[in-house]
């Protein structure tokens, strides 16, 4: 297992390097440049290019960037004069992570509950109710449900603040809005998985053994049905983190989601690369951790994983 982890670690590093290189080249191929604007003159652009070192040959810039990257320096943002990408990420990531973690937790708990309840009430009203929620959650995009929740619970009913991120009350609407899609996916997956498990022979065995219904559900059914959820948690985490952009925009949350889009619109090279590296490392790490948790939950994988 140790060697396997080391090997995967090296592969991950290589993955990140390839990612950075590809993005580094791709953004330079995009038409336009970071400093082009209505009022830019060629002379001033030359000064700015020199200030940021873009007057040097591309390969020099590349090695310079990689060198800085190895020291953990993501460079200066081109749009936010002199602010380093490191600082921006350090100031905004905790907010996005806070929002994301709350959403994942809410979605997981509620999703598992709804999924289990739907399966146990298969074909009854509650099942259809859960399926309805799941369909709405999957099919309605974030910007619709985000705006709708804001309009109803913020502006009309005045139960929660309309926007901003100033305390617990401010988190409820955005967290709920962001978790809806994930909640729906988890509900559907859990429901399907439970329905499959319920008909397994070992459940009948457990019933024959005389275990109580509660014990059967918690020890045998949920424990076995939850495996697919663990599998999709990795991609779901990625989905939530990349999906924060819309919700952060609607609720004016000072997170990092906006830099995803604005970095590209502004052609802020160091911002785009910084985001790429950050998310790249983050996703590689997230998948890695999911693999380990997977091993903990399913002994078969633990053994074969050696």
């Amino acid at each position: 297992m140790g060697r396997y982890i080391l090997k995967r670690f090296i592969v991950s590093l290589f993955t990140v390097l390839v990612l950075v290189t590809t993005v580094f080249i791709l953004i330079r191929l995009m038409p336009g440049d970071p400093f082009v604007s209505e009022k830019m003159t060629p002379e001033i652009k030359a000064n700015m290019m020199a200030y940021y070192g873009f007057d040097k040959p591309l390969y020099v810039q590349y090695f310079h960037y990689i060198g800085n990257l190895l020291r953990g320096d993501l460079g200066l943002s081109l749009k936010y004069s002199n602010r380093s990408v490191n600082t921006i990420l350090a100031q905004t990531f905790p907010v996005s992570a806070d929002l994301g973690i709350r959403s994942i937790i809410l979605a997981t708990i509620l999703g598992l509950f709804l999924g289990v309840m739907a399966a146990l009430n298969n074909g009854k009203f509650f099942d259809y109710f859960c399926v309805f929620i799941a369909i709405v959650g999957v099919s309605v995009p974030d910007f619709i449900n985000g705006s709708l929740l804001q309009y109803i619970f913020g502006l009309k009913l005045k139960l929660f603040p309309i926007a901003r991120w100033e305390g617990f009350r401010y988190t409820i609407l955005p967290v709920f809005a962001l978790s809806l899609y994930t909640l729906a996916v988890i509900t559907r997956t859990m429901r399907a998985s439970m329905l499959e498990v319920i008909n397994q022979d070992y459940i009948m065995t457990a019933q024959a053994k005389g275990l109580s219904q509660w014990q059967i559900i918690t020890r045998h059914q949920i424990r076995n049905a939850i495996l697919p959820i663990v599998t999709i948690l990795g991609p779901i985490t990625a989905g939530i983190l990349t999906g924060t952009f819309v919700i952060e925009q609607i609720y004016a949350i000072p997170g990092m989601g906006r830099f995803y889009v604005s970095g590209i619109n502004d052609l802020d090279y160091s911002m785009i690369l910084g985001m790429t590296v950050f998310y790249g490392v983050f996703l590689v790490a997230a998948n890695f951790i999911v693999d380990i948790i997977y091993g903990l939950v399913d002994p078969r994988i633990r053994i074969s994983g050696k």
């Binding site: 705006s147 804001q150 309009y151 913020g154 502006l155 005045k158 309309i162 926007a163 901003r164 925009q249 609607i250 609720y251 004016a252 000072p254 906006r258």
Partner: peptide, 18 residues
């Protein structure tokens, strides 16, 4: 001076007296 990226959100906040 608050940073509210979404103009519709800002409008809602105005209507809410914020």
């Amino acid at each position: 001076i608050l940073q509210i990226t979404d103009p519709n959100t800002a409008l809602s906040m105005y209507e809410n007296g914020e």
